[in-house]
Amino acid sequence: MNNRIKDYLELFLTFFKIGSFTFGGGYAMIPLIRNEVRRKGWLEDEEFMDMLAVAQSMPGPVALNTALFVGSKRLGFKGSLFSGAGVILPSFTVILLIAAVFTQFKDNPVVERIFKGIRPAVVALIVAPLSSLGKSAGVRWKNLWIPVVVALAVWRLNVSPVYIVLAAILLGIFRFICLMKRGVDK
């Protein structure tokens, strides 16, 4: 019994630590999680990489999905509750403090000047990884129209990304059915 509690606590603390020290979005957490999982012998590396692929194809923050499957593999559903809480709590605490303070100082002229400089930088940080992300997502000349149409639809026509996601999934399934039919005809 005591050991069980220790195991849950260890899961929680490991992910709390990872959640506290990875700045700059969820993707920064993945190598740290991989390291910890390998060091503690929780999962084989190959299994981890396979599960990572599944976690990345599911909706939701990738860092949370990764934490959830490691917790769940290790100690079942309850384990995933502990690893999930661990990875969420640090950012929750930090952002809550910032929200409480920042909403007071937002209109301060010095803060406003700083953020005037930061805002265009944020847009640049989103644009910068696009081409390398595109390559690893399998974007080539022949399917370049997909990201272009999506970007224009969301930006200009204000189409909800919910419909984009549903349409992309349906189109992918439709493509599979067409390919299968062609296979049967042969």
Partner: peptide, 25 residues
Amino acid sequence: PWIQSALSVLKPAIIGLIASAALIL
């Protein structure tokens, strides 16, 4: 194969979503 096929369109679409995030801002 169903999931793989759905992802083959979803992944490029996600790149478009990231691009739209920049354009909106």
